[in-house]
Design a protein around this nucleic acid. Structure first.
Lengths: 248, 248
DNA sequence: GCAAAAAATATTGTCAACAATTTTATCCAG
DNA sequence: CTGGATAAAATTGTTGACAATATTTTTTGC
């Protein structure tokens, strides 16, 4: 069974609670399923291309097919899932150009976020961010990759929230969730790890502390370029040269 | 009837074609309804707060309630519509802080777009943009406000497409559609018109033509600040001081 | 045995009836 | 009249049965 239905094992965690009141809690249930699938993607547990069948997933979460269907539609709108008519939903597989665009968009948005923060961040916030980086480094040092990854993403997310622009942080939230799909699809097989450089995070805070927003934005953009550089985004799948793949 | 069901008259245009093939065209039908409502918002025909009842709208478009419901959900995800449980959908009413964030996000994203364009725009594209500006000016000169407005939005949209970043242009698409809602909600009652300054558009192209991406981005940001400045975004509805409103 | 056709199965898409909730209208006491 | 309870209507939310399509398996002709 474990081998036959891998998707079931992958999207693990506590079972979705049955609705208590007859209505009203149900939208929370919908949100919970959405977030659990989203979290599975963030945790690199759901690779691109994974088929998401309605009946098995609905049974797994203990909801009707109609509700699950709604969740899939929402995930599709967030571009975490691709829905093709009559052929169901699968975890999105970003193309090379999409992936490049995604990183360029992150540079633009996170650059702006850091620029905003340069003028409004306070000592308490800086202290909190430093604590986060410390925990992140500890996690990686202890080999707890999943925890480190989560903290690393949280660093970017918290920066956005501190900037106080709900529109930009909403956009970034989407991009942060899509990033793992890009990494899984295009990670360089030779590289041991594909993740944020903690030192960059520290350097960004250093720049923010001195009030140098320009410098902080510059480091953030270089930081994202470094992450993108760890990937193999050279050629698109559609243009793969089969002759080259099989020698001669 | 016209007075009793204003929403029906507002979302006008050709009736939705009945599906020809049994399936497949149906998703196009869904898209068509989505776009018609979106267009109505872009044209300032659907003001914030307008109630969108499912049965009347479904009949208007000649589709089932279930299909229309799906469209409303999609519109809600694009933040053009607000859905509250058991209370239906209405055209979104952006708050003051949301509106400010929206403009700040536009400055960040369109600044980045123009920055990208500075390095890759060609003579043909510049020629096309100049033609657009000319038509825009003509429309406003002739008093054809709706046509001018459309061309003005198209200018920003086309710039984004020329930059060739699908993620950024997708985000901007959402922001462009939400902008009319902000304008309708917060336009200064004393102002005669609330719209883009065509001259700014021309100045942006001038800067792009000389290859000065920095300057073009600066003008774009000032351009958006000027548009935001035409609005009355001083206080939030939730903090409206009733005592001040009624004198003493 | 193999490829194409056909049947069987599995999966997604749609709809109409029903349930739950909110909104509006009615009624009645004070 | 007014305010509040009650009933009626309108509106949204859900579900399960069925239709349409895609996928897999079996059959058939060579």
């Amino acid at each position: 069974m474990s081998a036959a239905k891998p998707t079931h094992d992958v999207i693990a965690g506590a079972p979705a609670e049955a609705a208590q009141s007859k209505r009203g809690r149900l939208i929370r249930q919908e949100d919970e399923i959405f977030e659990r699938i989203q979290q599975a993607i963030l945790d690199h547990r759901l690779p691109p291309g994974t088929k998401l069948k309605e009946v098995p997933l609905a049974e797994l979460f203990g909801v009707t097919r109609g509700l699950l269907r709604k969740v899939l539609t929402r995930l599709a709108h967030a571009r975490l899932v691709e829905q093709r008519p009559n052929r169901g939903a699968m975890v999105a597989s970003p193309s090379v150009s999409e992936s490049r665009d995604l990183f360029a968009a992150r540079r633009a948005i996170e650059g702006a976020i850091v620029g905003i923060l340069g003028t409004r961040i306070n000592a308490t916030q800086i202290k909190g961010l430093r604590r986060m980086i410390e925990r992140e480094q500890n996690a990686y040092a202890k080999g707890e990759m999943r925890a480190g990854l989560k903290l690393s993403i949280d660093f970017h997310r918290v920066l956005a929230q501190m900037a106080g622009n709900s529109v930009l942080s909403g956009f970034l939230e989407e991009l942060l969730t899509r990033t793992p799909l890009v990494i899984l699809a295009y990670r360089d097989t030779r590289a041991t790890t594909t993740r944020c450089d903690c030192n960059d995070h520290g350097a960004i805070i250093d720049a923010l502390e001195t009030g140098d927003a320009e410098e902080a934005a510059r480091i953030m953009q270089e930081h994202l370029e470094a992450l993108e550089g760890q990937l193999n985004l050279r050629e698109d799948g559609s243009t793969t040269d089969l002759a080259a793949v099989f020698g001669s």
